[in-house]
Design a protein around this nucleic acid. Sequence first.
DNA 1: GCCGTTTTCGGCCCGACTGTTTTCAGTCG
Length: 574
Amino acid sequence: MLKSQVAALLDEMASLLEVQSDNPFQPRAFRSAARSLEGLAGDLEEVIAAGELRSISGIGESIAREIVEMAATGTSQRLVELRAAVPRGILDLLRIPGLGSKKVRVLALELGVDSLDALKLACESGSVAKLKGFGEKTQAKILEGIAYIGSVSGRFRLDDALPHAMLLIEHLQRSHRVQRVELAGSLRRGKETVKDVDIVASSSEPDAVADHFVRAPGVITVVAKGETKTSVRLANGLASDLRVVSDAEWPAALQYFTGSKEHNTELRGIARDLDWKLNEYGLFRGDEPLPLKDEASIYEALGLRYIEPELREGLGEIALAREGSLPDLLTQPELRGVVHVHTDWSDGAASLEAMVEAARARGYSYLGVTDHSQSAFYARGLTPDRVRAQRAEIDRLNSGLSDFRIFHGIESDIRPDGALDYEPAVLDIFEFVIASVHSSFQLPVEAMTERLIRAMKDPHTTFLGHPTGRLLLQRDGYLVDMDRVLRAAGELGVAVEINASPYRLDMDWRLGARARELGVRTGIHPDAHSPEGLDDVAYGVRCARKAGFGATHVVNALDAAEFAKFCARRRTGS
DNA sequence: GCCGTTTTCGGCCCGACTGTTTTCAGTCG
């Protein structure tokens, strides 16, 4: 079993324990063990075999036993018992905003509610409002909440969140009462999906700023409005929280509300060890606040290098900041070329010339064209004859270009047996190959892993494309042992792309530390099907930074000549 | 259930907001 699967089971146990157990710390322990497991570098089986589970922070004797059992059998005795004890629909109730484990337990015990449908009926009959601790307003909010989680999954892809967030920020910046304003929360940390948009502003007139905020474009509901916090909901269902603090408090508030919770807990621990106190209002020595110019001064005062928001996940970045060994993170201007682009030769919307123009307009010095290969009938994949015709067209265009170069590549399907999608003689035509899975997603994990590794062993393969095939909020990736895939990529010198499409962001940033450890390089690839699609690179850069990649790890940060060398080196054996 | 350079037992982040409760519990981040 993969560590992500075991982590999901531990998460489920945490939720089940929340509604079942009187001890709130027990579910928290399972939750934190699941996070530790997800962040684990390396292969779970190997960690178990080496007897090193217990050395992972948050995993003690009892949870270690659960993990061993789950890894071997796919479940555990204790999990089976918990599932039997808690009706299936109870966990859905926890997704309703404002309902936590305590209220869910009351609903289950007093009214026998065990599903969203049953709760809806109970609210409509008015019996929920009569319960102790509930009331008319709570009942109405529950009904609203049921409707809400029915209409959206509760999380948003970046392309659904970031543009709206930037509109809110711009709206706030237009108020002369706002001194400083910045995005916070998981959106600032570059997570691949977000639940809401957190914003932190400073002002000496917080009431007026809150009034201004609720009039922002797109706001349809004001959920809460207090002295420092205002919550609204936008037309697309996205929620946004604004905190307004004084300008002196702003650095601490921005740090606090950027999170993550795990990162902040660790940071507060450092403050506590110094007999200081860190909270959203400042860094205090006794009751005396230390003057803070900006966020960086907080880290500096605690004896740490500044930690970029993308790295603040509580996965060891604080230890790195203390030793001064944080990675240098990629910035978008460091990207010299744009690679993994479709044209109207296959399923792209624009011509080769139009994509070249769009890439040049964005300041790139080369374009890696990769239409689909012949098996991708649905996408008008290129037959060998059309491959040769496209090459002739690219040569013609290149001869007329100065200071810009088109590289002829292909996004080759990986066939179910792991073979690439053309004979070697055809593959020889391409300057580089991105090998991707587009079919037969249902293979067992072992077969899928072998399939990817076989594709990477072909010396034509330059990049592995979207390695898990996930579509965020729509479909999980196929089952594949990414640790073995990354090891093979490192040994073979195949780069693993970060597919920058906001639907994918695949490979996942959580694999970054392991990839770097294994010497695996990446490419930030927009998988663009139109000129505007090239701008998705920005999402990929966020993901790469979160993964800890710097320009030296990123193939398309090379200039055109170096990129050509990188593509050629596996075939020439150099 | 986990953890410990004061602890193997007794903590486990803590402050804001809401609603219902007349002094506070539950939820959230």
